[in-house]
Amino acid sequence: MSILSVKDLKVRYSASGPEILKGVSFEVDADDFFAIIGPSGAGKSTLIRCINRLVEPKSGEITLYGTDVLALNSRGLRKLRRDVGMIFQEFNLVDRMSVMDNVLSGRLGYVGNITALFRLFSKKDISRALSVLDRVGLSDHVDKRADQLSGGQRQRVGIARALMQDPKLLLLDEPTSSLDPKISREVMELIVEIAAEYKMPVLCNIHDVQLAMEFCTKMIGLQDGIKMFDGPTAKMNTKKLDEIYAMEVL
């Protein structure tokens, strides 16, 4: 049984607009580290954001750990989101909050409104945040404000926030595109390690095919909302890549 299965997913942003995803299907297993590649505008971000319903698909089917994602009500959706960690290209930290608070915000799916309102996180949550920060190598920056960190450090905070959720699936939307090549490699290495430690599958949008080939076990190639390739990274070759990126070359 696969952990995540997506069937015939179709998305439009507006009724009159173009169809961005034109029926995409794939399956993700427990130990998969999926790369989603494709030219800009292919619909990679859209696809990944459908899985935790930051974007509402028009039709199709998404099943995650046996739950029909698209049928969930708002309460169920919140519960689902808390099981799905997400890491963003622009980090999406709250700049004016401390690193600690940014990381703690990963627990928001678990705590009640009063706790959230007065920031009454338990000692357990704080200890957990500390060890997660330690894991991503930020134990010296706990009390700093998020906007005082470098890009690589900020993305590490983003990873820590996702880990606080105790996720069962990790979604990455170009986690390294705002970072320089050396830092990108470090961040990818960290993510691969962590995914193995937490034994969770990963779906990763990525622009840099080199990085994708190096770190990911499987690949989906998207072009203009249509899946062009789906298989182990080893089966990807230059010819197929050229095909996927044909639009961009033209």
């Binding site: 919140r78 959230a116 979604l171």
Partner: peptide, 15 residues
Amino acid sequence: GPVEAIRATGASELS
């Protein structure tokens, strides 16, 4: 951006 990120953690709208 941060709004989406916090929403993606499963937080309530008040959070």
